[in-house]
Design a protein around this nucleic acid. Structure first.
Length: 417
RNA sequence: GGGAGAAUGUCCCGAGUGGCAAAGGGGGCGGACUGUAAAUCCGCUGGCUAAGCCUUCGUAGGUUCGAGUCCUACUUCUCCCA
């Protein structure tokens, strides 16, 4: 499916963003004819979007870069219902207040990546609550509901999975795809939007919107999905011990974000460089040619570039420097995650295990104890052998802090105040 | 409305004759080997004031020296009949 003429599709294709397109030739032609408007919808189920969503935001970025207009759609209305696609349990219902808070928090990330404004290719921030919340039930059923075939909706994989597993699918959730389909039509009316993009799990929902437009006598719309990103060893991307890789820095620090990419598997480096950085394809090819231990250089660049996109260049460089000092120089860097602890506590003495729990490196004393038994705890780079050891003012190193380490990669500084 | 089944360690899947802190996976964490990679091997994967104590098997009661296991009611979910 290569050989696209438009800059937009060619770029997405070359960088590995394309999984399916509903009518590749038609869409390519539309992109050639002039600026198009395309959108991606985002759930407001958390206070931040995560790395999986970053892929689609990046598509919006390339859309804008190649001369088109992106819309980031906040799911203020659809989040009242919850997307059941490929899930085998019902989501918890969110309160309108939670949704509003989430949207405010989520919005911050976009302006770093997209350029918003009133110009012809400036991005638009929309919220489907603006039209969904006002709908009149019976009217909506007659105008829109009649175009949806339940038989067909039941045949979508996203729903079938749920039914096959004999999990219930409430009528509430069943309506999600109708709302999403309607969003597409509404965005077309308001902004002339002709393309909806999303993850591969959204294919069914997106195509529903394309169909709905047909049936309602509207224009031809297009669907484009990205592959579900997995690591080469088959793991879903973006999962860590503490949950998802969030983009908001209060949930997942730039340093952690940098580390996440630094630890990319060899086999994924090129793929991730194409998707998560803006480096040219020739530069990526050069980095991809590095073999053996040299590929670590490519991973550092990947980490820094990806972090710069989300958190800014300054934060990215700082994270890189912290990592360099910590891992390559073997000294502790000042901006490792730091926890302040009252000086009085140290004077009285703090149990090592407790200290690790307070630092968030262990879930409980028992957990810390087990890590110590496995040789995974270090205080100032010295392995903890006695779980009863006390940390006191004596434990402060020459820089006046105590460095706690879990394994080789997680470090926290305790700073007396 | 009637009938049949299901709910297990707060990550998931999943065994479980009345003696159970509860088999086995997956995932995760730690160790070894390396390159902050992958693969492989080893250990850990309820809580605590820790040779002991406390809390866990949908919820609440009951039988029993003793209940995840048996009984009753309830909740939720599935399937079949209406």
């Amino acid at each position: 499916m290569s050989g696209f003429k438009s800059d937009f599709l060619r770029t997405l294709d070359e960088r590995g963003f394309i999984h399916q397109i509903s009518d590749p030739e038609g869409l390519d032609a539309a992109c050639m004819k002039g600026p198009i408007t395309a959108y991606v919808g985002y759930d407001a189920t958390a206070t931040s979007i995560h790395i999986g969503n970053l892929i689609t935001v990046t598509m919006l970025y390339w859309l804008q870069e190649t001369g088109h207009r992106p819309i980031s759609l906040m799911g203020g209305g659809t989040s009242m219902v919850g997307d059941p696609s490929f899930r085998d349990d019902q989501r918890k219902l969110l309160t309108p207040e939670t949704i509003a808070t989430n949207i405010e928090s989520i919005k911050k990330v976009y302006s770093r990546i997209l350029r918003y404004g009133d110009g012809p290719t400036d991005a638009i921030m929309a919220n489907n609550a603006d039209w969904l919340m006002k709908l009149n039930y019976v009217e909506f059923l007659r105008d829109v509901g009649r175009f949806f075939s339940v038989n067909r909706m039941l045949s979508f994989d996203s729903v079938k999975l749920r039914l096959d597993r004999e999990q219930s699918l409430s009528f509430l959730e069943f309506n999600y795809m109708i709302m999403q389909g309607y969003d597409f039509v509404e965005l077309n009316r308001r902004y002339g939007t002709v393309l909806q993009m999303g993850g591969s799990d959204q294919w069914g929902n997106i195509v529903n919107g394309v169909d709905l437009s047909h049936r309602m006598g509207g224009p031809q719309l297009y669907a484009l999905t990205t592959p579900l990103l997995t690591t080469s060893s088959g793991q879903k991307m973006g999962k860590t011990a503490n949950g998802a890789v969030w983009l908001n820095s209060d949930l997942f620090s730039p340093y952690d974000f940098w580390q996440y990419f630094r630890n990319t598997e060899d086999a994924d480096v090129v793929r991730f460089l194409k998707i998560f950085t803006r480096l040219s394809l020739s530069e990526i090819a050069r980095l991809g040619a590095l073999g053996g231990a040299e590929i670590n250089e490519a991973k550092k660049i990947l980490a820094t570039e990806a972090t710069a996109v989300v958190h800014g260049r300054e934060a990215a460089d700082a994270a890189a420097e912290t990592a360099r000092l910590t891992f390559e120089e073997g000294v502790h860097a000042d901006d490792l995650p730091t926890l302040e602890i009252p000086k009085a506590d140290l004077e009285a003495g703090v149990g090592v295990l407790t200290a690790f729990v307070q630092a968030g490196l262990a879930a409980s004393n028992g957990d810390a104890r087990r890590s110590a038994q496995g040789g995974g705890l270090k205080v100032n780079d010295r392995t903890v052998t006695d779980p009863k050891e006390m940390l006191t003012l004596e434990s402060l190193n020459k820089d006046g802090v105590i460095k706690l380490s879990l394994g080789k990669k997680k470090h926290i500084l305790l700073k007396p105040v």
